[in-house]
Design a protein around this nucleic acid. Structure first.
Length: 527
DNA sequence: CGGTTTTGACCTGCGC
DNA sequence: GCGCAGGTCAAAACCG
């Protein structure tokens, strides 16, 4: 079991080289240490892992040789084992010695375990980072494609020029961020806002985007006195759309879409999905039609952070946890949180960009014909006050699914094929394997992989959230891009724009107004 | 002691 | 205008 986690982690770590034929690793371990106890294997594996990570990707990279890398720990571990198991009949003195030896061996093991834990953590961090990076690239690619689609539609429909314009600006990383950022009078540092972190930049952009949506004007006019105030303004604007709306009739059509909602449903037994941010609960309410209370959280990572989220279990299926994010962080985010933010932002961006084109505001769904999964994302709910995107991670590979009745569990395009690294993702593991349609999902092949990874990572909600975010994003992207880009650069961070996307430490265009995991799919009432 | 959670009250929007 | 429901506030309780 544990051995398997390790393996999974290894693959994840090596990232793109994740392959179905994990048997290689199996063999390596099995051959070299068949008689060693599981936990020992684990240690061995981890350490190996770590080494390979730090130096070069030893064997995992493609070298199928099974020897080598496991010697280090094995030897040390074996010492303890031998001490433990050898010699049933000896004198007392020897026994005492033996005990001492055992003690020391156990201590050593403990220490090693601790070390391994630390290493694992760093590995997880790295993995998360890698995912984030990939995600960012994918998002960019996504945006580009969406942009293209819009252009096409634009050609087809001229009347929508203004809205498309706003979308385009939204898509364009540089201008938008540059626009608003330059004037954070109240904020500490423009430079900080600009470059400090991807998140920041994105925040700014998103804010601007909000305003654009509200005022239907290309940016910057809105004075962003203070990032905090700004965002809170946006937040407030949610409640009083009519005020802004009164400015212009044209905007009327936009108003309902000012705030996109990204609804993500995921199976989780945990009361709360840790997404890398710090939250403070500020309220709880019983929502109509749902026996489970809805909890309200506020981001406390920064003083004025306007981001809030709602958490509620689905009335139909209480194993499904629905989390709703709203607002933009006005502070740097940890990797895990970034992933989530990026994902929801991207989804919302897609929704918004698509929504701008549907003047009816009808519950349309296919705004991105060329994006198989994205198409299902951009679904608007006519009844909802805000456009809502539902990232349904409780379904199958069709994980990303917007406000649509889930297709029968049998249909399986399995985009995962294109995303080997996803196979090891806990997000799919726990949900699918344990509940929905186990066999169908990943059952036959790398099922074990998923399971093990799931088991291994399930304990780390942060990681889960991050991966969930990454996945949900990836799922919305065309498989090809993913396959290519994934391999390019896990470690290469920002500079690695295999996709040809502007480097940007973070996709500025992404972070839009608000991201929401809403419960509309299962609990919300129309109205 | 500071931060978080709990929980009832309050505010606001919306439908009738 | 009234009632309902969603969302927020804020004091008290709780926790590390």
């Amino acid at each position: 079991m544990e051995k398997q986690h390790s393996r999974e982690l290894t693959f994840l770590h090596s990232g793109d080289s994740l392959r179905p034929n994990s048997g290689v690793a199996d063999r390596t371990l099995d051959d070299s240490s068949d008689h060693v106890e599981p936990h020992i294997k684990e240690m061995d594996f981890f350490s190996t892992q770590y080494q390979s990570h730090d130096h070069h990707h030893h064997h995992q990279e493609g070298n199928t040789n099974n020897n080598g890398s496991s010697s280090f720990i094995d030897s040390s571990v074996n010492i303890g084992l031998n001490l433990l198991s050898s010699s049933p009949g000896v004198s007392r003195a020897t026994n005492e010695e033996k005990h001492k030896a055992q003690e020391s061996a156990l201590k050593m093991e403990l220490e090693k375990l601790n070390e391994e834990n630390r290493r694992l953590r760093s590995m997880l961090d790295q993995i998360t980072k890698n995912y984030n990076e990939l995600q960012g690239q994918l998002l960019m690619a996504l945006q580009k494609q969406a942009h293209r689609n819009q252009q096409e539609q634009k050609d087809a429909v001229n009347g929508m020029a203004s809205t498309i314009m706003s979308v385009q600006q939204f898509m364009d990383p540089r201008p938008s961020s540059a626009l608003d950022v330059n004037e954070p009078s109240g904020s500490d540092d423009k430079t900080q806002e600009l470059s400090a972190s991807p998140e920041n930049t994105m925040e700014i952009v998103s804010k601007e985007y909000d305003h654009r949506m509200v005022q239907n004007m290309p940016g910057k006019q809105v004075s962003i006195e203070d990032s905090t105030d700004q965002t809170s303004q946006n937040w407030g604007s949610l409640k009083s759309p009519k005020v802004d709306q009164s400015k212009n009739e044209d905007q009327v059509s936009e108003v309902p879409f000012r705030k996109a909602r990204v609804s993500v449903r995921a199976r989780s037994e945990a009361p709360l999905i840790s997404d890398g941010c710090q939250w403070r609960k500020y309220g709880q309410k019983m929502a109509k039609g749902n026996p489970c209370p809805r909890a309200y959280y506020r981001c406390t990572m920064a003083v004025g952070c306007p981001v809030r989220k709602q958490v509620q279990r689905c009335a139909d299926n209480k194993s499904i946890l629905i989390t709703t994010y709203e607002g933009n962080h006005n502070h740097p985010l940890p990797p895990a949180a970034t992933a989530m933010a990026n994902t929801t932002s991207a989804a919302a961006a897609m929704l918004l960009s698509g929504s701008t084109k549907s003047k009816d505001g009808l519950p349309t769904s296919a705004y991105y014909p060329s994006l198989p999964y994205a198409s299902s994302m951009a679904t608007l709910s006519a009844s909802a006050p805000f456009p809502t995107i539902t990232l349904d991670l409780t379904q199958g590979p069709n994980a990303v699914q917007m406000l649509r009745p889930p297709p029968s569990a049998t249909s399986f395009p399995l985009p995962l094929h294109g995303y080997p690294q996803l196979l090891g993702n806990p997000m799919f593991g726990p949900s699918k394997l344990s509940t929905a349609s186990p066999a169908l999902q990943l059952g036959q092949r790398p099922a074990s992989m998923v399971e093990t990874v799931t088991a291994a990572i399930a304990s780390d909600p942060n990681f889960t959230a991050a991966l969930a975010a990454a996945i949900s994003t990836i799922m919305g992207a065309p498989p090809r891009n993913q396959g290519n880009s994934s391999n390019n650069n896990d470690e290469n961070n920002n500079s690695s724009n295999g996709v040809g996307v502007p480097a940007l430490p973070g996709s500025p265009q992404i972070q839009q107004s608000c991201t929401t995991f809403s419960s509309k799919a299962c609990t919300n009432k129309p109205g």
